[in-house]
């Protein structure tokens, strides 16, 4: 099933037919959005995976704006703002929509209550979560796609959302890969949005980095190294050190940590699947 990019929340707006003001609630965070029904169609549904929408922004501490304006030379520009302050503007509505989505997700990740957001790809394998922590352009999405194609269930290609008990919740935004030929563009991968995925204990934390000459030679990480690998990608660790480290501790207690360079994603995926099976993560 391919996700629809038509935001179904827009229809019931009590504002003018074109103006849309909506509030989202997710992970203890409220976020307001001011846009138009036309532009809302470029946003994914739901805007925040796992979030709920209503039509009151009274209690939202932040309101993101997604609008359009004319530049001095008469061209249409699409503007993303936060509490009235321009964050970005560009002529491509798709890119502007992705920017807005990303900014909203970052805001939620940085302000979530009782949840720890780790920048990581996540799939489910044999009832355990496999985490692929990594910064941007480390190839997380490619690896997630490869594992999904190998039979894993897609949980996230952006954040592992970890609760205080160390369980990982799905954060299913549309799976996107950056084509090498067009770094600012995206294409949609095969995935199915499923809002009934259960939180999972972590079975494996896989730290890989793409290197053209990289060879898959996994090194077993200690529990502490595994925790640090996640902490290095934890969004709000500076603001919530105790909560983050406590949740990460519970997450890694039953997990195996592996680290390796990798070359071709397809080749690496085969090795990873074998590593997962050999490490018998379901028995941990």
């Amino acid at each position: 099933m391919q996700t629809s990019f038509v935001n179904s929340h827009v229809a019931a707006s009590d504002k003018s037919p074109e103006e849309l003001v909506v509030s989202y609630s997710a992970y203890g965070v409220r976020v307001g959005l001011a846009t138009t029904e036309t532009l809302a169609r470029y946003l994914p549904t739901p805007l925040i995976p796992g979030g709920e929408a209503d039509y009151s922004v009274d209690s939202s501490p932040v309101i993101f704006g997604f609008g359009e304006t004319q530049s001095a030379d008469g061209r249409t520009q699409f503007v993303v703002s936060e509490n009235g302050v321009r964050l970005s503007w560009c002529a491509d509505v798709e890119i502007a929509a992705r920017t807005l989505e990303s900014r909203v997700h970052q805001y939620v990740a940085a302000n979530a209550q009782q949840f720890v957001f780790v920048h990581a790809g996540v799939v489910s394998w044999k009832g355990k979560a496999v985490l692929l922590p990594g910064r941007s352009r480390s190839g997380k999405s490619t690896m997630v796609m490869g594992l999904v194609n190998a039979g894993a269930t897609y949980y996230s290609d952006e954040y592992a959302v970890i609760d205080a008990l160390g369980y990982v919740h799905a954060f299913q935004r549309p799976l996107r890969l950056r084509p090498d030929v067009a770094r600012t563009g995206y294409f949609e991968g095969n995935w199915a949005y499923n809002d009934s995925l259960l939180p999972l204990p972590v079975g494996l934390v896989l730290c890989t980095k793409f290197d053209q000459t990289g060879v898959w030679q996994p090194r077993l990480l200690t529990e502490g190294e595994t925790l640090l690998a996640l902490l290095q990608n934890t969004v709000a660790v500076r603001q919530q050190a105790e909560l983050s480290i406590h949740a990460l501790k519970n997450a890694v207690v039953s997990a195996i940590g592996l680290e390796s360079d990798r070359g071709d994603a397809g080749y690496a995926t085969q090795h990873i699947v074998r590593s997962i099976d050999q490490s018998t993560i379901e028995d941990r």
Partner: peptide
């Protein structure tokens, strides 16, 4: 083993590769 804890921006993907998000 030591690591530097990231800022929120460090631990997130750039939005469509747009540096404006770092402003």
């Amino acid at each position: 083993v030591s690591v530097v804890a990231p800022t929120p921006a460090m631990a997130s993907s750039p939005a469509a590769g747009n540096p404006q998000q770092y402003v």
